[in-house]
Design a protein around this nucleic acid. Structure first.
Lengths: 337, 337
DNA sequence: CTGTTAGCGCATTCAG
DNA sequence: CTGAATGCGCTAACAG
């Protein structure tokens, strides 16, 4: 970049002092109209762009909020990113987004980077970072956490998390209510809290309805499509009497759906299928997939607003995210007995 | 943020001068091992984090690359974002991502913001910004443009764009080759260059094979799922003899697929369907969707590398993105005649 | 209302 | 090898 124009150059061009230019730029004080006009002209003529660094250094405020997402291309977390953008819009703050790629070391590196950039608040989406680090962060600046149940204390930060267990339980209960008795489960990675909770919910529902939990009806996937496909194949081989499958997320459900298609099995006639997360595409699968929706966009937006309110010393009404069962056509009723 | 620790405080704590600390931090010069150790200790003890602003102000280098994407949650552009991350990884530069939401004013605002942040290079994904602005930008710093055919001159910047027209033509030619004669088209918005080019390719293929272009076989959508559904319904009403539909992007193809399902029409038996973009989900639709893939990830990665090479005064081997027809099961052969 | 002065935190001369 | 001095571009008292 070939030497950008500075504020003093503008001042010289307009024949005023630097402080006057600064005042006009920031509206810090009233300024003679004529001079103001001259300054604007000079800015235009020189193509001046204020240097954020210098400004931040002088004011001590960066005007930016750090956002740590596990994956910049994740269909699941991106909704939250959009929400954060919306929440920050018009506030004068802008988000700085970094991905941690589900790796603790990268996440820590990302946080360090954000801290170096003197973000005034931080929003953490999911991720692997130990709670311990999160608490340390919360002590330094306002933070918002999405997708993890963690107590950050009154003034430490806010966290928004869905009750995965309850939703999974509702979902499986729904299947049972529709007459299904042999219900498989394709789970997520066992080191993933969400995955474990969803599995727990599956067990809860079975036990609640007096159905035996059969470990062979559970196969583990990795939350990606291919593992759903493989998981379904394996379940099908061992359990010919299975009539429904609860898949721990929609992405794997897509894979499972394909496995059924390949075998000529119809959904929901031959097999009922439910997912989790309600990705945008799930209304358009064949047939549309029953799933549970988390209001990621709204959660992101609220977290952004929360950070802003903390920064301004205001309070904000709490937000109670409501998970919603999206009942669609991928589930059939079976005569019980 | 409660007054962060500064370099001088570290210096005092370690009993050395600020410059020494700076040298150790940046490895600018050899320093006595004992002092180095003391400094590291002090840094650890005080929890010092270098202030990026101050550093950038002093060095004149921000170490960041601006990225303008139309939509932070777009499944189409996100691959490119991942690619950019990969391309920048380990370079010492980090991306600053902003969305323009397909609005010229927001895009211009975003560019201004990036310029204020003194990004050293910029990558523009798609977007609405007039070519004129892009040229102006290219004159200031190295830029890379993805998804637009624009000549930025030798040292202005690089642009990577797919030949939409050619790909569309290939796709429709493929349909014709499989025996289809009455082929519908659900197009994108007419003010969208990609959409127009894909429509042109559709015409090209028809004319090339001596088939008449029938405007009533073309309905316009907006690149979103619902418009694909509606588009398909409309085509079906007016053209009972239609056997295949070329949908201008995968998202709309999903909608079209659902319309067919609702009417009990099978794909590909009753209707062949092809999309465009090859979204990640398209391998998992029912049946898997024939589409054309653009290597968004690699393109993004290359653009990042291109910017880096420009910044370092190096040259980089050119990249020729190759579009690829992903032939899957959504197309059936028809006996011609 | 406006100019002058003094830093913000750091890298980088320039002398030791 | 290391400390002192200077300035990056801007804002914020401080006096007019």
């Amino acid at each position: 970049m070939n030497r950008a124009v500075t504020l003093s150059e503008v001042a010289r061009e307009a024949g005023v002092s630097p402080s006057t230019v600064s005042r006009i730029l920031n509206g810090t004080a009233r300024v003679n109209d004529t001079k103001a006009r001259q300054v604007r002209l000079a800015i235009e003529k020189l193509g001046y762009t204020p240097n954020t660094f210098a400004r931040s250094l002088a004011t001590g405020a960066s005007g930016s909020i750090g956002v740590l997402t596990p994956d910049i291309a994740s269909p699941f977390y991106n909704d939250a990113l959009s929400g954060i953008e919306r929440g920050l819009m018009g506030s004068g703050y802008s988000p700085i987004i970094i991905s941690g790629h589900w790796r603790t070391d990268e996440e820590e590196h990302a946080v360090a980077l954000l801290l170096n950039r003197r973000v005034e608040g931080m929003i953490i989406l999911g991720g692997q970072m130990p709670d311990h680090d999160l608490h340390a962060l919360a002590a330094r600046l306002p933070i918002g956490v999405l997708g993890r149940t963690i107590d950050l204390g009154a003034h430490g930060g806010a966290s928004l998390a869905m009750d995965n267990r309850q939703s999974a339980r509702d979902l499986v209960n729904y299947l049972i209510g529709r007459g299904h008795r042999v219900i498989g489960h394709i789970s997520g990675p066992s080191d993933h809290a969400d995955a474990r909770e969803r599995l727990d919910g599956y067990r809860d529902a079975l036990e609640e309805r007096g159905l035996r939990f059969d470990p062979t009806l559970v196969v583990q996937g990795d939350f990606q499509e291919p593992s759903g496909l493989i998981g379904m194949q394996r379940l099908l081989q061992s359990h010919s009497n299975m009539t429904a499958v609860f898949v721990a997320n929609d992405q794997m459900a897509y894979g499972a759906r394909l496995a059924l298609y390949r075998l000529g099995l119809r959904v929901p006639d031959d097999m009922s299928l439910v997912g989790f997360d309600d990705l945008p595409g799930s209304s358009y699968t064949m047939p549309p997939l029953t799933s549970v929706r988390q209001p990621m966009g709204e959660m992101g937006q609220w977290l952004a607003r929360y950070i802003l309110s903390r920064l301004r010393g205001e309070t904000i009404e709490p937000f109670e995210p409501r998970q919603e069962l999206m009942l669609r056509e991928s589930v059939a009723s079976r005569r019980s007995r």
